[in-house]
Design a protein around this nucleic acid. Sequence first.
RNA 1: GCCCCGGUAGUGUAGCGGCCUAUCAUGAAGCCCUGUCGAGGCUUCGACUCGGGUUCAAAUCCCGACCGGGGCGCCA
Length: 434
Amino acid sequence: MLYDSRSITANEYEKEVTVEGWAQEVRNLGGISFLILRDRYGVVQVTAPKKKIAPEVMQAITSLARESVVRVTGTVKPSAQVKAGYEIIPSSLIVTGAAQTPLPMGVVDKVDVETETRFNHRYMDLRKPEVRAVFEIKSLTMRLIDEYLADNGFVEVFTPKLVASGAEGGSTLFKVDYFGKQAYLAQSPQLYKQMLMSTGLDRVFEIGPAFRAEPSDTARHVSEFISFDGEMAHIDSQRDVMAMIEGCTQFVIAEVKERGDWALRALGCDVAVPKAPYPVVSYEKAVGMVQGAGFKIELGEDLGTEGEKLLGELMVQDGYEMYWIAEYPEAAKPFYIMEKEGTPYSYSFDLDYKGQEISSGGQREHRYDRLVQRMEKMQLDPKSFEFYLNAFAYGMPAHGGWGLGVERMVQKMLGLSNIRETILFPRDRNRLVP
RNA sequence: GCCCCGGUAGUGUAGCGGCCUAUCAUGAAGCCCUGUCGAGGCUUCGACUCGGGUUCAAAUCCCGACCGGGGCGCCA
């Protein structure tokens, strides 16, 4: 059996073990050599005193190229001089994956590496524990979302990613050739999850990729991201939807803190569970608040990145890292949102986390005639949405839902400056490789 | 798409018309060293994004291309 840096304990002292990992560093002092071997969970030190080691093993260690994969068999010896409390005295060393030199970038070098270089050599970048830890947390986050929603009666679904029309206009769609027909990569499961509301699968969720051909060039946009979508039927108002997201985010963050402890330590990051209940700030009130802070904006205008950040600062001052911005102007929202009758607003909300939108949702328009009216108002042709509209014509309950950017949530939770840090191989306007 | 900024050894940088045969660190190759953990000492190696132009002279100034960074719009 193979041991690793986490599974070697005092029980293994004086016993022979085999470990495999990357040769992070070799410190050769002449009469004694130290090999720092890194694996998923940490490092072990292999110590080779020249006089006690077979010459071929000594030769193998001193000539090792950094980042080569090696398998070492040896005896575990307790040692007060080593941070881990033990070291391995090797009896054999096999290079199972030699590394070429020089490396395209250092894993433990004392010089900085630019973001572009890191992403060009992502396999190497991900060898850094603090870079990799993000993905341990991201995986855990997904699992926790699953757990929470399953406990709340949600069915996990998978909607098509190859679609014939977009959910919110055509400009942000990636075109693909589909057996000679025009198709697109799905920008959102929106239409499909709503259709499901007419079936009896009255609580569904999906965690899957979404594609946006927006020419955005910011630290919080990529063209492929993981969207956590949910939709629930038989609701009384969008408050039911908000309560679900609030419960879910509270659960996820609290459990990440518990179960993701070791990964958070690798990141050197302290996660706080946001104060609940999350305050609900109406769009109207939000505009007033940023105006009060000296920001130039008129009612009806979008808050914009700056306004959003400013509002985030104001809310954090009051101790709230998460908060709702509710009832946006209906004109700024997609066709499927329900209008708030007699006002220019809508039954919609955004969930902001430290000044950045991570989720948006609301109550949907489930009344067929109103939905068609709203499409026409937004200059969309109901005919091209027939497959969707039909589901509203034969018995559709009131419903609402949300979309939440998983990476944005992880980014904000971990305090990362760029969403790309939460994506193994990010896709953006200038990056398609690797 | 718009505004600003930048591209120098494997990596990160200094230099910004002649003192450049281009700085420093890190790295790589080699040698010395028995307790390193940012090991130390010595030697060596390695670069001005590309194409035009200005000039006696271009890494340095101008134009274009390509690539990248920061911000905005839009959104998750």
